[in-house]
Design a protein around this nucleic acid. Structure first.
Lengths: 155, 155
DNA sequence: GCTTGACCTAGAGCAGACTCTAGAACCTAC
DNA sequence: GTAGGTTCTAGAGTCTGCTCTAGGTCAAGC
């Protein structure tokens, strides 16, 4: 990430627009992140303009993954606050990450269950369409009582 | 689903409270679903009270899976409208389900990618904690310029 | 006859995560 | 020196998906 061997973080000064391009986030969102306390450090200014560096970008890219995997903003803020608090709370940071990992694994498992059910439906529709019996999949809205056995073959 | 061999759907008359219990949805949500047009038929009334049946419950359980897997309410409404429109549009219904299935598969793939990254972080923290070098994972918030090489080992 | 509990409608309120607006400052290029 | 693009702050608005409130009806049990 750093272009120099050591201590050269401030060499890559990035404008908010540049960071937006590199992270896929809008400048609005980047400013909003600051208000929400999601950065790992107070973003410094040149005059009144924010000056980011590549470590900020790296963090934002990780944030994107955390958000995409469903971590609430409040949880990201908690993690960022731990980092800001400095060394000594690494076990807590780990706990946050582990908890999220477990969450995501649960979500994946749940989605797989859903997929099975959804794919089952897809399969039923495909077979009925192929067999030309698709019209028996669900009764029309105001089906009279004698025809509503069809209501029980489900969509 | 049906307790009788054919045409007996109306035998299981369920109150909104009963349906809430069977589906895990709140009565508020069940009424809101109606306003949103998510049912497969107009829910009939006895007086002014809704009378559900087991086919409604089966649909709601499927809805739960669709919602849990991220299908937007608008899409569920679209599907419900197709069913309400009666036989003849089964290919369209299939298309909706197939599109959703693909969406979910994509989401699962994305989550797996995220998982890898998150697990990588977890791993780093675990190893540093075990080695007693966790304090080098991230520089404190106001680290001076000479120490911010640490900023590049990422959280 | 009265209380209790389940139900009704219409509509307001809320949480989360952005997204945009207004009005102004600043920098760069021509 | 002025036009155009980027940035700034503070705050309002939006969208989704519920969730709750207010005020009322209705049936059953004591």
């Amino acid at each position: 990430m750093a272009t120099t061997a050591d201590g050269g973080a401030r060499q890559d000064a990035l404008s908010i627009g540049e960071v937006a391009r590199q992270t896929g986030l809008s400048v609005h969102t980047l400013r909003w992140f600051e208000r929400e306390g999601l950065y790992l450090r107070p973003i410094p200014r040149a005059g009144q303009r924010r000056v980011f560096d590549s470590a900020d970008v790296a963090w934002l890219l990780l944030c994107n993954r955390l958000r995409a995997s469903g971590m609430p903003i409040a949880e990201i803020r908690r993690f960022a606050a731990l980092v800001q608090a400095g060394p000594g709370n690494e076990a807590e940071r780990l706990a946050v990450l582990e908890a999220h990992e477990q969450e995501v694994r649960k979500r994946v498992a749940m989605l797989m269950e859903c997929l099975e059910i959804i794919h089952g439906k897809v399969d039923v529709y495909r077979r009925h369409l192929a067999a030309g019996t698709a019209d028996r999949l669900w009764a029309p809205p105001f089906a009279d009582a004698s025809s509503d056995a069809a209501r029980h073959s489900m969509p």
